[in-house]
Design a protein around this nucleic acid. Structure first.
Lengths: 231, 231, 231, 231
DNA sequence: GATGAATGAGGCTTCATTCAT
DNA sequence: CATGAATGAAGCCTCATTCAT
């Protein structure tokens, strides 16, 4: 949780009971507002969701929204950061579990669809739709978040490569694969969840997508690949 | 060229010289405005680019913009349609040339990066960034355009499958692959062109991406794929 | 008259009749708004006078105000410039008429009270009250205007000094006198016009003030002054 | 010290020790807040200085500010009163020392520049800039303060006149001179301290200004003045 | 057809003030 | 008394859109 003026947070560990309670209330209000913003932005769109509507939905006044968030953009950025953090947590967990085999990638793919997309379609809409094309500051945040996610995937791929003594086609290959994996997952989620609203189909589609990704990776792992493997 | 109000286009084939000239002028103005919009929207963003700025850049008045386009949204939609049309043309050409082999996919990928992304980075920004998250009507158009592109790719994949007597893992597989291919291409372009501004790197990255895609397709073509092909 | 985008003004001298008329309309609207602002600001105060009120009084929409003026501050700044220009014109005329004698100063004082203060009490309120304490940008303009006015007076004093072969007490004396004259005139106007609302009394007070000023000047002209002239 | 609600000041002369201490604390807090307000208002301006900033600077809470001051305006008014009181004290002292000769005026001028302006430039900014144009209630206070100051000067002038058997040009002359003296001093301070930030120059300028003022007074004291004294 | 001035709804944001703890 | 979170009125400003000339 980040406040407008984080420097004001009392660092004293021996907070009085009422101070503790106040802090809890603060956290609670912050969350309430953020949840209201998430709901409205993901359904109505970033521009259509006015601060007043968000305040109404959160049952607070407009001023209170501005007490917790610098401005409307900040609301979106906090949401974005939260979603980015969640994604990295989920994926990181899988990567760590099965460190240097393709199973880590497979599992990460599975949880992306099952635990993130299916359970949080609103967040899919925010990170893949509403935060796009909203000006430089938001874009900069998006870029950082994707940068980190791609970095995570790239590191996982590199580890797999090292563990299995595979050489990638080029210096950039690991990164290119990571970016490709992101793109594939993103558009699949967007297509079947947002555009076609078929969340249940993700069950059958997910495995296909993962196979696609795994096949892609394998194909980039063999340096005899470029011409030899046409059917 | 589509006008705001389906104009009473003179159907007489024997148009007078001045009428012909007027029609040419019209077409020219329409293009001028659309080009100005393309330039401004791709650099400044859809919201930051005001109608007045677009009019100024096109050296026409605000009223003239509204003569040729219903509203601001329409400007973006026309741009989107144009870009979608261009993409389908380029890719369709490649698909048609090498009808039922993976080479068609490979070539389509190549021209996507070389002839579309490298030559028209502004259009990449518009179709993949500025037209996202701009309300329902624009989104509907985006959806249709992607639907068609995905359909094209799916058909190409199906034809390859049929020609080579391959069975896909599931009924949806061809579509899933098409969507995956779109996603991969899109994010690679976005990442290296828009975020990292390394257009020259696309030369080395492109082939890698295509290998990734081809590998993904191959892996989904074999029904023994899911467990047998880990490195 | 200064517009928001002065660069757009067509420089062609052969303006069509309708273009000329449009220009006249523009000028007229600009004046209407400025006059409304002058009236409201001088009576209600800069902060109390809202843009909406000004627009209402000028019988235009809020948008129109912003078509002619960049923002609220700009409205005040334009007003200030106008008043500054008027003052310099009135005083400059008197200085030029009687170039190098104290009569120039006397006449300038007279017209300041008779032609400026008495006829335009609202402008007195704006330049001496409402434009004070309104932030750095307005203050900067005020400073420039006073700088010019003081410069005009200083030059007049210097010319008188040269013509009559007088030596001032110190290098700065002419400037100090000019500033003093400004201060005296300003507060007299403020006191009797704004605070005491006795415009008619300016008739009798004016001459007294002018005598005060003239006495002050004379006293600074003689280098034997500092100790010799106590009553 | 004046409180918001005329507090139920304990009238018992035998205040308990803790009550005394509480009173001291109160006075101290009041001063701390007023000093914070003085500093912020004189540098940032009355409008830019928010209550929260003032509270922060004074290291108290916003609520505490409102315990000691009715509202923001009151903060400015108290400051104004304090400054007005200081000025009258300083000047009154000089007037009393040399009661009925021009030396009193001279000394008052000197201490105004040396003891008030030079030592308290922030207060100069507040009384001559930040309290101007801030609405009717503040203006009313300013008027009262200036009224008293002018009254003091007028009385001093009258006393001088009586002592030396001088007749002023008109019934209003003493007041007019007093107002003129105020204006001169005010703008000189404003010009050289606030606009030009040359506090050290006041040393040389001060005497010049005082000579100007003395000359002005003398010139209004002789009824043969109006036409006879041109150089 | 072209122009560009005029419109005004709508949104964001600020900040003085209050009041429950 | 002190706190500081909450309030919400109020104001500024933008900009897509219209329409008389």
């Amino acid at each position: 949780m980040r406040f407008k003026d984080p420097q004001k947070e009392k660092q004293k560990s021996n907070l009085s009971r009422s101070a503790l309670r106040r802090q809890r209330d603060r956290e609670h209000r912050y969350q309430t507002i953020l949840r209201a913003a998430e709901a409205l932005i993901s359904t109505d769109g970033y521009h259509s969701a006015s601060i007043e509507q968000i305040a109404d939905k959160a049952e607070v006044s407009v001023g209170t929204v501005y007490f917790y968030f610098k401005n409307k953009e900040d609301l979106l950025v906090q949401l974005l950061d939260e979603i980015g953090y969640q994604l990295r947590s989920i994926l990181g967990r899988e990567f760590r579990k099965e460190d240097s085999s393709m199973a880590g990638i497979r599992n990460a793919g599975r949880v992306f669809f099952e635990e993130f997309c299916r359970l949080h379609p609103g967040r899919v809409a925010i990170i893949f739709r509403e935060s796009v094309g909203q000006g430089v500051r938001v874009e900069e945040h998006r870029k950082q978040i994707f940068h980190k996610l791609i970095g995570d995937v790239r590191k996982a791929l590199t580890r797999i490569g090292e563990a299995q003594d595979i050489e990638y086609q080029s210096r950039l290959s690991a990164e290119v694969m990571a970016v490709s994996i992101m793109g594939t997952s993103e558009r699949i989620a967007y297509h079947y969840l947002i555009w076609q609203n078929r969340p249940h189909d993700l069950e059958t589609i997910g495995p296909d997508v993962i196979d696609f990704i795994v096949g892609g990776i394998n194909n980039l792992c063999q340096n005899n690949s470029r011409e030899g493997n046409e059917p």
